Simulated scan of single mutants.
Amino acid sequence: MGFQDRTNDLQLIKRLHLASRALDARGLRLPSRLIDGVSRILFAASIPGQAKIGGNVFFHHSGLGVVINRASVIEDDCEIGVHVVLGGKAPTLGAPHLERGVIVHAGARLIGPIRIGEGSVVGANAVVLEDVPPHSLVVGVPGVVKRDGIDTRAYNR
């Protein structure tokens, strides 16, 4: 069973986000926030409706413990592990932008208005504070690029 087969049916966390996003887009802030609250209760996750999340994004273990800044962008075909944080860095405006096909492993922290290049992999518990070029493997605290030119098929589920 390939990656595409496992992500075709939307996960509940993704459905809740889509509903919250649709309500927020219509200016219905209170119902949107109520749905965000349901995500927090069910999954201990904070994925606000304002966050832009593309298609076919997969949250491991239903997004358990994931915290996403409302200004974050996650493009299509990304994978997000448990206890991942995509956060801002006050007073700087902005939040992480994950380009297509990025894999973020468990416990990683991506902080500030940074861009993670297409097809990159963020290792478990890495703390990423700077942009990551496409097709790179970044690990450590602070995160440093250990490999470039990688193929994400070697790093996904």
Rank of each mutant, 00 (worst) to 15 (best):
2 G>N: 10
2 G>I: 12
3 F>L: 14
4 Q>D: 05
5 D>W: 02
5 D>N: 10
6 R>G: 00
8 N>L: 08
9 D>H: 12
11 Q>A: 01
12 L>R: 09
13 I>H: 01
14 K>E: 08
17 H>T: 04
18 L>H: 01
19 A>N: 05
20 S>C: 01
20 S>F: 09
22 A>K: 08
23 L>E: 04
24 D>S: 07
27 G>H: 06
27 G>T: 15
33 R>G: 00
33 R>H: 10
35 I>A: 13
37 G>V: 09
37 G>S: 08
38 V>Y: 01
39 S>W: 04
39 S>Q: 14
43 F>E: 06
45 A>Q: 06
45 A>W: 10
46 S>L: 13
53 I>K: 00
53 I>V: 14
56 N>R: 15
56 N>G: 12
57 V>N: 01
58 F>Q: 06
58 F>Y: 08
59 F>P: 04
59 F>H: 07
63 G>D: 03
63 G>L: 10
65 G>W: 09
67 V>P: 00
68 I>A: 10
68 I>S: 03
68 I>D: 02
71 A>S: 14
71 A>G: 01
73 V>H: 04
73 V>T: 11
73 V>M: 01
73 V>R: 09
75 E>G: 10
75 E>C: 15
79 E>Q: 02
79 E>M: 14
81 G>A: 02
86 L>P: 09
91 P>H: 02
91 P>F: 06
93 L>W: 03
93 L>C: 01
94 G>K: 06
94 G>W: 10
95 A>I: 13
96 P>I: 12
97 H>L: 10
97 H>G: 04
97 H>Y: 06
97 H>V: 14
98 L>S: 13
98 L>K: 12
98 L>Y: 06
99 E>W: 03
100 R>I: 08
100 R>H: 15
101 G>W: 12
105 H>V: 06
106 A>S: 07
109 R>N: 05
109 R>H: 13
110 L>E: 08
112 G>P: 07
113 P>R: 12
113 P>M: 04
113 P>N: 14
113 P>A: 15
115 R>D: 05
115 R>C: 14
117 G>L: 10
118 E>Q: 12
119 G>D: 03
125 N>L: 15
128 V>W: 10
129 L>V: 14
129 L>D: 00
129 L>T: 14
131 D>R: 11
132 V>L: 04
133 P>H: 12
133 P>A: 13
133 P>C: 07
135 H>D: 07
137 L>E: 01
137 L>S: 07
139 V>T: 06
140 G>Q: 00
141 V>K: 07
142 P>N: 01
142 P>R: 02
144 V>E: 01
144 V>Q: 00
145 V>D: 11
146 K>V: 14
146 K>S: 05
147 R>V: 06
149 G>Q: 11
149 G>F: 03
151 D>E: 14
154 A>N: 02
155 Y>L: 08
156 N>F: 15
157 R>C: 09
